[in-house]
Amino acid sequence: MTSALTAAVFHAVDTLDSKAFAGLFAHDGKTTFGNGPVLEGREAVEAGTVGFFGMLSGMHHEIVHEWVVGNDTIVELVVTYTRKDGREVSIPVVSIWTVGDSGLIDSYRVFFDVAPVFA
């Protein structure tokens, strides 16, 4: 069964709602997508996702496995990206995050090779 936070994270992302996604972060939360720079603070997280989402027409996250251990969550996924030309590309992805005392995400990391999406 998928946890409520995991469902909220991927609903926000699948609807390309950068504001809702960033709202799941602590004010000083940070995220890293692949080998990109660390985005620190809710505003930076929102701006970074706006930029990434702008390169796509859509995406869908299929959860393969989810592990919640204490404040840490690890999610294995297959993500289908819809490119601007309408072509769909699916790739394996792992997302890992840590929730702080506020119940919001303090640190979020996404591990993927996004090159096939834009090839």
Rank of each mutant, 00 (worst) to 15 (best):
T2Y: 13
T2G: 13
L5V: 03
T6V: 06
A7Q: 15
F10P: 02
H11K: 14
V13K: 09
T15D: 11
L16W: 02
D17Y: 13
S18W: 04
K19M: 08
A20Y: 09
A20K: 12
G23S: 04
G23F: 11
L24R: 07
L24V: 04
A26C: 03
H27Q: 14
H27R: 12
G29D: 06
G29C: 05
T31L: 04
T32G: 05
T32Q: 15
P37Y: 04
V38D: 15
E40K: 13
E40P: 04
E40W: 05
G41N: 00
E43W: 05
A44V: 05
V45F: 06
V45K: 02
E46L: 01
E46H: 01
G48I: 05
G48Q: 10
T49P: 02
V50Q: 15
G51L: 05
G51R: 11
G51P: 03
G51W: 04
M55P: 07
M55N: 10
S57G: 12
G58L: 08
G58W: 09
M59E: 11
M59V: 03
H60C: 03
I63C: 12
V64E: 03
H65T: 13
E66A: 00
W67T: 15
W67D: 14
V68N: 11
V69L: 14
V69A: 14
G70Q: 03
G70V: 06
T73D: 11
T73P: 15
V79E: 01
T80V: 01
Y81E: 09
Y81D: 08
T82N: 00
R83S: 09
R83G: 07
R87L: 12
R87Q: 14
I91F: 04
P92T: 03
P92R: 06
V94P: 12
V94D: 08
S95H: 13
I96T: 12
W97H: 14
W97R: 12
W97G: 09
V99W: 04
G100K: 02
D101F: 07
D101Q: 14
S102P: 09
S102K: 07
G103W: 05
G103D: 03
I105V: 00
I105N: 00
D106Q: 11
Y108N: 01
R109D: 01
R109L: 07
V110H: 07
F111H: 13
F112R: 15
D113Q: 01
V114A: 15
P116Y: 05
V117E: 00
F118P: 05
F118A: 06
A119N: 13
